[in-house]
Amino acid sequence: MAENQVVVDGEIIHCIGCGAKVQTNDKQALGYTPKSALEKGLASGEVYCQRCFRLRHYNEIAPVSLSDDDFLKLLTSISDTDSLIVYVVDIFDVNGSMIPGLHRFVGDNPVLLVGNKLDVLPVSLKKNKVKDWLRQRANAAGIRPIDVDLISAKTNQDVDHLLDQIEKYRKGKDVYVVGVTNVGKSTLINSVVKQSTGIQELITTSRFPGTTLDRIDIPLKDGKHLVDTPGIIQPEQMAHHLVGKELNLVTPQKRIKPKEYQLNPEQTLFFGGVARFDYRAGDRKYGFTVYAENNLYIHRTKLSNADGFYTKHVGHLLTPPSQEHVADFPALEAHEFKTTQKSDLVIEGLGWITVPSGVSIVGWAPKGVAVLLRPAMI
């Protein structure tokens, strides 16, 4: 929560739309209002936070974050409802976008798992394989989804199908949309609103009554609501270690074009300065296929030179992080594996490298960012 609450004549100013305490410091926190808008609001006697202003004038859901404690309180309240849970995760950062212990908070409510950012999947990747893998990851986290859907909120791809799925599974109940920050949840909500208005008229978009500081209730035709909940901050996401334009060089922006590298044992690939892949040992030279943001700089070097090369060039040749950000960027941690089948080495939030069977490899990522091995998806 932001600390610089606006106080006038000894009284804390609240947004008249949602009741949040108005603040001008943190754009991602509740109650944020630009100083210029605050001055106009104080003059008129109607102060709205930016989130409510966008909602009121543009039918636009703006992202907002809650602290872990506040979010857990909200999750606990969901378990007391009779509703459908739409759980949104990022296809390219599944581990980082999982909500720890979600299964304990949703109670007996059914969960529809939605993988977002379908538009950046390589053409060669089959949707059914992605669905199966997502279901397996959810099961490992203790979640048993009633179904798995893949969409692109950014391009509206398959959002109409998701609407059909929501209507199929909610059975006259309220719908809660949950997810961590940076998974595109608010983009999805906005896409649902626009898509529904033009196609199925599932959602009434003229007004959004019931707006509170921790949720937005979007009325459905039958009197129930689609509830947008604030995103919880997941510090293990790769995105939280990057700033500004750095994020666009790591997070896929368009459909990924796979790149193949012929590597001998004891060779290394650097992914800018945010990750690293070592081919430690194997019988021979192999082809390794990289699935990552098309504009991310990838540099090949000898394993024996890798540590010194990184120290010398991070923030310069190896970017992101930028030179200004190097001092604050976490050290890369090593994760060692030996494959027994064709596999994908996944660096969550970055992408993956497809590797052959019978090789010793190491994936490096910022401390706290997950690196894992899975059966090859392609």
Rank of each mutant, 00 (worst) to 15 (best):
Q195I: 08
V193Q: 06
Y261G: 03
I199L: 06
H225D: 11
Q253N: 12
N264C: 11
I233T: 13
L188M: 15
T251R: 07
D217G: 07
T187G: 03
P258I: 06
P209K: 05
P219Y: 08
I216T: 06
R215S: 05
T181I: 11
K224W: 01
N264F: 12
T212A: 04
T187S: 09
K185E: 08
I233L: 14
G231H: 06
H241Y: 07
T204V: 05
K254N: 13
Q200E: 11
G198F: 14
L249Q: 00
D214W: 13
V227L: 03
V243T: 10
P258D: 09
K245N: 13
E246V: 02
P219I: 11
I199N: 09
S186C: 04
L249W: 00
N264T: 14
K224E: 00
S206I: 11
I233F: 14
K194L: 06
S186Y: 02
K254V: 15
Q267A: 09
D228S: 11
I233W: 11
V192A: 13
I189A: 04
K194A: 09
L213I: 09
G198N: 15
S196R: 02
D228F: 10
Q262A: 15
T187N: 07
E260Q: 05
F208S: 01
T268Q: 08
D222W: 01
T204H: 05
T212L: 04
Q234A: 12
K224A: 01
P258S: 08
R255T: 06
H225R: 11
L247K: 11
Q262V: 13
P219E: 13
Q195V: 10
E246I: 01
T268M: 09
I232P: 01
R215M: 08
L213E: 05
T251D: 10
P258Q: 13
N264G: 14
I189R: 02
T187Q: 12
I218H: 01
P265M: 02
L269G: 02
K194W: 04
S206N: 12
I216E: 01
K194E: 10
H241P: 00
D217H: 07
G244P: 11
H225I: 08
R207Y: 15
N248A: 15
T268P: 08
L247R: 12
R255A: 07
I256K: 00
H240D: 02
E266C: 14
E266L: 15
L188I: 14
V243S: 09
I216S: 02
